[in-house]
Design a binder for these strands. Sequence first.
DNA 1: CGTTCGATTGATGTCAGTCAACCCGAGTGG
DNA 2: CCACTCGGGTTGACTGACATCAATCGAACG
Lengths: 236, 236
Amino acid sequence: MNNICNCDNCQHKLCARNVPIFSSLDAEEIQNVVSLIVHKQYSKGELIIFEGSNLESLIIINEGRVKAFRHTYEGKEQILYIFSAGDFFGEKNLIINQEATYSVEALEETNICMIRKDDFRRLLKEYPMLSFKIMEELVIRLAHMEDLVENMGAKNVESRINGVLLEFAKKYGRSNSKGIIVELPLSREGIANYIGLTRETVSRKMSLLQDEGIIEMVGNKKIIIIDIKSLEKSVE
Amino acid sequence: MNNICNCDNCQHKLCARNVPIFSSLDAEEIQNVVSLIVHKQYSKGELIIFEGSNLESLIIINEGRVKAFRHTYEGKEQILYIFSAGDFFGEKNLIINQEATYSVEALEETNICMIRKDDFRRLLKEYPMLSFKIMEELVIRLAHMEDLVENMGAKNVESRINGVLLEFAKKYGRSNSKGIIVELPLSREGIANYIGLTRETVSRKMSLLQDEGIIEMVGNKKIIIIDIKSLEKSVE
DNA sequence: CGTTCGATTGATGTCAGTCAACCCGAGTGG
DNA sequence: CCACTCGGGTTGACTGACATCAATCGAACG
């Protein structure tokens, strides 16, 4: 992902190549898929889809990170997923013809690929292996949601925070001599809205983790995990 | 579901017929599926699968209700799903070769159908529509988990309880002149473990709902929802 | 350099958790 | 037929942890 060639063609290829659900296709088939793809770019803060809207395409993230969230009637935001390169969304509309049940917003500069509903349906028929790959992805996503539910329902606040930090470390962390450097996709408030707390509580607990020497905060958007064992202790 | 013929053959047919994922198959294909099915019966409290075990079959519920749950390292139970007739589980093992991430326990007398992993994989190849049906089911289940996360993360306690009661009403309720009669699948403690509260809190809030004339409790396992509008108010 | 937005810190309040007693209905055995 | 037990449910008093409100800080950006 580091050195992206900027010619249109390469980007297309990259998009389809990086997507797990297309991993079973050969070069020619990929080419076939690529021809159907439309690109679009969003900058930080832009809404990609809106809760309740009717999506006409499956959307795959090529580069960047987004959050999927809902608003309760009280106006509280609940973040459901953080999607990054290779993840797709909009499948609800595609598979069961249901409108989007969450909004999606770019957390940073984000490139997406779109495949129109009918095109994708045709692909599914043409390449049955695709269905299987999507099933795989859905099962993985389901497992993630199960973790989240357990995290929020049956765990104390410390464990929840440790849990998110570990999740982010796993997905976005790079090791170096000092520890694991993690570029946080979310602000304190975002983290709070992900695990059902308030930003103040998240702030306090993270400060505590820093005091204990378990993590180190570098600015607002980056942390270094010094002692990952301690974080893991409370997570099963 | 009311009058079940007890001969083996009928039960088999019933089993496959009632399952949404087999709804696209014709009589002959159903017969083909039926021949692969093994039946088993569990009584209330019996464990059907255990967290961490390797399941060799897909399991479909023919009759009865079960709960799927996990234990945190602190010993707290988090219920993830209530499955009933037509629902399946064990797909994790089947699709991504991962061990069970939750235990499943019968909440009442329960009949299940089992299809061996290899048999089911063969069915998937033979009837591509099956994959699509399973995708549908997974998407629906995912939507359910998203609701649950929102419920637990972004809502006050009253809304959470109202949410579960409405969910149960929708799945298990029968209308009559007085209101909607709901056979609760879970005890107070079970409800608490489903939405991340304690049994005392659930008990208190339900008593409150009764005082307000919104519901009426009949014994411990049944409620009548008198004023469903009030329950719905707090749920979006 | 100033403005702005997010993060932090502190003081206070509130509500769900905890602990404990009691209730109630079902089942059991004398 | 009644006494006993047992498990789940309810109720009450108290506590503590997180939310809330408010002030301040500080980093990023123009």
